[in-house]
Design a protein around this nucleic acid. Structure first.
Lengths: 234, 234
DNA sequence: CGCCCACGTTACAAACTGTTACGAAGCCAC
DNA sequence: GTGGCTTCGTAACAGTTTGTAACGTGGGCG
């Protein structure tokens, strides 16, 4: 995952070559396109992790291309432009750019911003593979995300149903802060649905199977996971 | 989810008040802190979707605070600073800032950049479980991985249980090649368990709800998904 | 002191899922 | 072909999960 693929969309061949050389030296896989057609073709040909998009392309309009790409894909886009007026920057952000850099720019600063956008875009993705923080410890308990196993302080294993482990994961992801029922439901179902008192029942059953003191109820607000959570890489 | 919670960390009370007023008018929920202690307390008190962090806080160092927050949480951070030199900006990006804005700034541009960062963070979060190729088409059917929805050739929606969609995903990931029951079970449970004829029943029920011809049985071997699968990015 | 609202708890019904049993279909030897 | 064996499809069933409804309880507040 450390090898990221960048696509440079830039009609100034000299500038593109310089950029590509620099970024390749930084360990990226770089491909180039000079216009709208080339950019779309490159996007179809291979996975692209981030696009450096020059706004002032000969006949094509970078802003419109950005919108077009954004409609089809969620790939991060950093706009590069000689146009540095605020309203021009805002136009870029409005069509979905993740960052906007004015020419001329410091290549090292560009690199830092590329890293920042990639970091933000890929953080959740890398966490979804469950390599990191596979084990959570809290108040003597232990939850192993890899095996979905919960162990009580005494070492006994507790069997939780799928929905129960799901809500436990929500609490472990947000310890020590109050969560409303809507927030919990959203995190659980990923489609908003605050149905009756289903959350109450899940919390109730989780409390029964674990420690009733773990989940404190915030009257009028929601619930709060009242233990510090320590994550251990596996 | 449209109501985002911002935390402003800024020791200039007047500036903080102005910012807060402006952002509240834009529909955000805003809270403020003036120093490191206040910021950490605010983060513990409630969920925060994005932090506006002034680098030049009286005695505290904004960069160090950013690193500290970043170690504990993944909340997006936009740094705001009167220090606009490139090396200062890069220091901010290096400790995990998502963006870096130099004072003085155009409030509307700040707003655009806040939106850009929130947009990226939210998409990354919602995509963390759904991989790419969110939509699969096969033999006139359609499976939307994002919504777990299956659509029949006529356009009718078919309701599948969680286990049924799970086995469907296994077939979609391995079309046109025979799968033994053990292979299917392993892909399903991620811990090996080929108990009895559970797989047969799942296949049976999936056949009933979709098209009996889709899954061919390879006698003495297992099952085979007999349709080409076309993936579309969403 | 009593009302009211939020929450805890129990009971229940519906859905999901694996097991067993039995019949049908294929494969092989003869 | 025929008999026997294996493999698979299907129906019935039971255990578990999960949301809903109903009722009890306790604290806040007039």
């Amino acid at each position: 995952m450390s090898l990221h693929r960048l696509l440079i969309v830039e009609d100034d061949a000299e500038m593109a070559a310089m950029l590509a050389a620099y970024l390749q030296k930084q360990g990226f896989h770089v491909s180039c396109a000079a216009d709208r057609a080339g950019a779309l073709a490159a996007l179809k040909a291979a996975r692209v992790d981030l696009i450096l998009l020059d706004v002032s392309l000969g006949e094509d309009d970078g802003v419109r291309i950005c919108a077009e790409i954004r409609e089809a894909q969620d790939v991060p886009i950093i706009m590069v432009s000689a146009l540095s007026a605020d309203h021009q920057r805002m136009a870029g952000y409005e069509v979905g750019a993740d960052d906007y850099i004015a020419k001329p720019f410091n290549p090292d600063l560009l690199l830092a911003r590329i890293r920042a956008v990639l970091r933000r875009a890929h953080r959740a993705a890398s966490l979804s593979h469950r390599r990191r923080n596979a084990v959570c410890r809290f108040a003597g308990w232990c939850y192993d995300a890899r095996r979905d196993e919960v162990t009580a302080p005494g070492g006994w294993q507790v069997a939780l149903s799928s929905r129960e482990t799901a809500i436990l994961r929500v609490f472990l992801a947000n310890p020590l802060i109050p969560l409303t029922r809507d927030e919990i439901a959203e995190a659980l179902d990923d489609d908003e649905a605050a149905e009756g008192r289903a959350i109450d029942m899940l919390v109730n059953r989780l409390r029964q199977k674990t420690d009733p003191g773990l989940i404190r109820t915030e009257r009028g607000v929601g619930y709060l996971f009242s233990a510090e959570v320590v994550r251990e890489d596996d």
